[in-house]
């Protein structure tokens, strides 16, 4: 039985090793550490592109976390820290892209499609009800063109 016990302990140890990523010094002030963590959540890891740097094990993410903590400890605001990263890695480093002319479509596109779809649905439903389900015909053409 002792063999199994040892194996179980080893297994548990391995699991724990997986959880603690790398040795990293947290900020002594828990409030600042929390602030630094929330900034890290918003920064994209450039090596493992789908992750934030908060939960990436990449070397670069580790270095960037150190920089975030340094700057938070130096009293920088989240925007200043993000700006620092943006100046080096571009908008890409932000998990939430900023609203500007090149990203307007990204931000407003889905909303526009939603509204347009809703409008088409609403108008055609209204027409169908008014016409008693009859097929569309010429007299309605004017209003339809306006929508399109």
């Amino acid at each position: 039985m002792t063999v199994f016990r040892i194996l179980a302990i080893l297994l548990a140890a391995c699991c724990l090793m997986g959880i603690t990523t790398r040795s990293e010094e947290f900020l002594p002030d828990p409030q600042q550490e929390a602030k630094a963590r929330s900034i890290m959540e918003d920064l994209r890891c450039l090596v493992c592109q789908g992750q934030s740097i908060a939960n990436s094990d990449a070397d670069l993410a580790h270095d960037l976390r150190i920089i975030v903590r340094e700057q938070v400890a130096a009293g920088k605001s989240p925007d200043e820290v993000k700006h620092y990263m943006q100046a080096r890695y571009g908008d890409w480093v932000l998990l939430k892209p900023p609203v500007k002319t090149s990203t307007v479509l990204l931000w407003l596109g889905p909303l526009a499609i939603f509204i347009a779809g809703g409008a088409v649905l609403f108008l055609s439903a209204r027409r169908l009800r008014r016409e008693g389900g009859e097929s569309l015909n010429a007299p309605e053409a004017g209003s339809g063109d306006d929508i399109l």
Binding site: L46, V47, L60, D63, L64, I67, R88, Y89, G90
Partner: peptide, 13 residues
Amino acid sequence: LDGRVSIDWGVYK
């Protein structure tokens, strides 16, 4: 040595 200059250049790969 600490990779800071390469971070300033925005090197990631």
